[in-house]
Amino acid sequence: MTGRVLVITSGKGGVGKTTTTANIGTALAKAGNKVVLIDTDLGLRNLDLLLGLENRIVYTIVDVVEERCKLKQALVKDKKNPNLCLLAAAQTRDKTAITGEQLKSICEELKEDNDFIIIDCPAGIEQGFENATAGASEAIVVATPEMSAVRDADRIIGLLEAKEHIEKYHLLLNRVRPNLIKTNDMMSVEDVVEILSCKLIGIIPEDTGIITSTNKGEPIVNDEKSLAGQAYHNVAKRIMGEDVEFLNIDEPQDFISKVKAFFLKLFKKEA
């Protein structure tokens, strides 16, 4: 078995890299794949919290690199899904504790008996980014429809393009708010895609469920009703090569906007 190595990156912090990693990983595992998630945000680990595994971590990636344990010992199994494992980051060390080469060899080893290795990249374009991308051959660039996030994503895309081992990369647009787009107060998905000229792999709507799911330590893809969860499931399907249509993420309208839409429709007919 040769697994695929994906890196989830963004440049800007707080756009949802870790949430995306946790959800795509869980969704892929639910679909029957063997998945390992690697947190490379040394010193600021959070992927364990989102998966609810913070109490089960014994060894970290630094322990593996410094040969205090075997790679298999450091893999923490998910509570629900035995197909999903986490290789946690060290909380007490900084980004210099591992090198890109070391991470690459870990990925090579994990490739042998896993379908997907998903790397959660730290924010920024420094050493942490270089390390995280070293072993990957595919990348998902996470951005929100905000100026700063799009600008940083553009920078990241430029850096990824310069890396020969990155065969393909896609854009995942996170925290999209259809109501704001409708009133022209937020850049639309098309706007961002046009500006970045990058292929889209997913549109995730803003969802308060993300906060509650993080509180519980359970990725939102486990919630069948959630719109964001469905969107993440679709992303996982696209990663597996399925052709899935983009989700209609229009929020249910309130009364006023319904009346407004009704009148506008009438007016258009008259004209």
Partner: peptide, 26 residues
Amino acid sequence: IVEFFSKTEEKDKTKDVARNRLKLVL
């Protein structure tokens, strides 16, 4: 009536501002 209801739509389109600024800075 139509004017009243569509008023909110005619205010500054901040998304266009953002898009143009972003294009320039990129």
